[in-house]
Simulated assay, not measured.
Amino acid sequence: MAELADLLEVRRTNPDAIAAAAVARKRPANLFGGPHGKLMIIAADHPARGALRAGADPLAMANRVELLDRLRTALARPGVNGVLGTPDILEDLLLLGALDDKVVIGSMNRGGLAGTSFEMDDRFTAYDADSIAAAGFEGGKMLLRIDPDDAGTVATLAACGTAVSELAAHRRMAMVEPFISHRVDGRVRNELTAEAMIRAMTVSAGLGTTSAYTWLKVPVVPDMARVMAATTLPALILGGEVSDDASAAYAQWAEALSQPTVQGLVIGRSLLYPSKGSVADAVDRAVELL
Rank of each mutant, 00 (worst) to 15 (best):
residue 91 E to C: 08
residue 127 Y to K: 03
residue 34 G to E: 07
residue 120 M to E: 07
residue 160 C to K: 00
residue 74 A to K: 03
residue 33 G to V: 03
residue 53 R to T: 09
residue 139 G to P: 08
residue 135 A to E: 00
residue 94 L to N: 01
residue 177 E to N: 02
residue 48 A to I: 14
residue 12 R to M: 13
residue 197 M to V: 04
residue 155 A to T: 07
residue 130 D to T: 06
residue 60 A to D: 08
residue 127 Y to C: 08
residue 24 A to V: 06
residue 71 L to Y: 13
residue 72 R to C: 13
residue 256 A to K: 13
residue 92 D to A: 04
residue 86 T to D: 12
residue 86 T to K: 05
residue 59 L to K: 11
residue 186 G to N: 08
residue 79 G to S: 05
residue 2 A to S: 15
residue 7 L to E: 05
residue 277 G to D: 10
residue 218 V to S: 07
residue 225 A to N: 10
residue 226 R to C: 05
residue 206 G to M: 12
residue 192 L to C: 08
residue 257 L to Q: 03
residue 80 V to S: 03
residue 21 A to E: 05
residue 97 G to P: 01
residue 17 A to R: 14
residue 51 A to R: 10
residue 18 I to Y: 10
residue 265 L to G: 07
residue 278 S to P: 06
residue 76 A to Y: 00
residue 240 G to K: 02
residue 102 K to C: 02
residue 119 E to H: 00
residue 179 F to I: 00
residue 204 S to W: 04
residue 208 G to W: 04
residue 155 A to D: 14
residue 30 N to R: 14
residue 197 M to H: 15
residue 116 T to F: 02
residue 272 L to I: 08
residue 171 R to D: 14
residue 157 L to V: 13
residue 56 A to W: 01
residue 39 L to H: 12
residue 175 M to A: 13
residue 181 S to H: 01
residue 273 Y to D: 02
residue 268 G to V: 11
residue 240 G to R: 07
residue 156 T to A: 15
residue 288 E to V: 07
residue 174 A to C: 00
residue 119 E to S: 01
residue 150 D to M: 06
residue 160 C to F: 00
residue 262 V to H: 11
residue 138 E to M: 12
residue 112 G to T: 00
residue 70 R to G: 02
residue 266 V to K: 01
residue 27 R to H: 09
residue 85 G to R: 13
residue 142 M to V: 15
residue 61 M to P: 04
residue 83 V to N: 10
residue 29 A to M: 05
residue 104 V to N: 03
residue 16 D to Y: 09
residue 80 V to T: 08
